[in-house]
């Protein structure tokens, strides 16, 4: 495929602990093309943030990449050492996290934080960087940008702060943005503003986005493709409309049926029994089988098939057999 920005092949992340080696991400493969948005959904503990952190090279030790490859614009980045990776991060990969207050330095005016990033990664003068910082803030919709570059993060509201973070993520013109729950801490009306902003900026610049969230509604409205994760593995991957309207993995089917929107008021919600297993007590075979309505002996014995980038949609032996 041409124009592939990010390609992840069989990525496995391991965390050695006293209870044994945990695998928060297990043989995960995905691709994002230029200008496309890939939504990564899953419940807490599904490994979606861990995947994002692995891509940007910010896994907290002892977590580490133990297998697989990560390719960015045709260059392998998972084998890079600290310093070359620092140059990639920020320049080629931008990041937006859930809590804008913790991703900004409280002691530096926001203008300095923007110019610092640009001076580090772009070959421009300080005055040019300041000009670009003001332009970047104007672009994300901060009124009075020329004066506000001297303001500190605490002087902004939550939504405005997230706009600053987006400006910061995009100021070095990266080809990929990893956005980890960018709107979870925000109100509905502000969430709509931030999502619209992310979509517009990335469409204009052809930036690829990896959008990590637990909100199916946000995914439906924003993403081109969606990856559903369960217990560290890819459960289902495909175009957003197909996966959400005609899910084939029993987990995706259960997840879609349990959202209150699907019940249309009054009716009982469909519920998936139990909860996602902890990584220390993963069941044998397919990790979903204890909660799965169509589990058979094969599911209890064999791990579910691993999804390659070009394979079918669902990592399930009996995909599509249960009606949605």
């Amino acid at each position: 495929m041409t124009d592939t920005v990010l390609k992840v092949v069989n990525l496995t992340v391991k965390i050695p602990t006293r209870q044994g080696v945990l695998r928060p991400v297990d043989k995960l493969s995905l691709e994002i093309a230029k200008g496309k948005i890939l939504g990564v959904v899953g419940e807490s503990g599904a490994g979606k943030s861990m995947t994002g952190n692995a891509v940007i090279g910010l896994l907290d030790p002892p977590a580490h990449i133990s297998g697989g490859e990560i390719w960015l614009n045709g260059k392998r980045i998972d084998t890079l050492t600290r310093e070359p990776m620092r140059a990639v991060r920020g320049k080629q990969i931008g990041m937006v996290f859930q809590d804008p207050l913790t991703s900004l330095n409280p002691l530096l005016p926001i203008g300095d934080q923007l110019t610092e990033t640009m001076l580090e990664h772009l070959d421009i003068s300080a005055s040019e960087a300041e000009k670009r910082a003001i332009a970047a803030l104007e672009e994300v919709g901060i009124p009075g940008a020329a004066e506000r570059i001297k303001s500190y993060p605490h002087e902004f509201s939550g939504g405005m702060r997230q706009r600053v973070v987006i400006a910061l993520a995009l100021c070095a013109e990266p080809s990929l943005v990893v956005a980890d729950e960018p709107t979870t801490a925000l109100d509905v009306s502000v969430q709509a503003q931030i999502i619209a902003l992310l979509k517009r900026l990335c469409a204009e610049r052809g930036t690829a986005i990896m959008l990590i969230t637990h909100d199916m509604g946000v995914i439906a409205e924003t993403a081109d493709d969606v990856a559903v994760m369960y217990a560290g593995r890819m459960a289902e991957l495909g175009p957003v409309r197909d996966v959400l309207t005609r899910p084939t993995h029993p987990y995706t089917q259960g997840l879609m049926a349990s959202t209150p929107l699907a019940a249309k008021g009054g009716k009982r919600l469909n519920q998936i029994p139990g909860a996602m297993p902890r990584l220390t007590e993963l069941p044998a075979g397919c990790a979903f089988h204890p909660r799965c309505p169509i589990a058979k002996d094969k599911c209890r014995a064999d791990p579910a098939p691993t999804l390659g980038a070009g394979d079918g949609r669902a990592a399930c032996w009996f995909a599509g057999e249960a009606g949605p």
């Binding site: 509201s157 939504g159 405005m160 109100d187 509905v188 009306s189 502000v190 969430q191 709509a192 503003q193 999502i195 619209a196 902003l197 909100d215 199916m216 509604g217 946000v218 439906a220 409205e221 957003v240 409309r241 959400l244 309207t245 879609m256 959202t259 929107l261 699907a262």
Partner: peptide
């Protein structure tokens, strides 16, 4: 009206929402 419009919808594939103005 704005709240209902701004809330993400499961069947809102590629929906272009006019983002609400201003903040609280």
């Amino acid at each position: 009206k704005m709240l209902l419009e701004a809330a993400p919808k499961l069947d809102g594939f590629g929906r272009e929402v006019e983002p609400p103005k201003g903040e609280i």
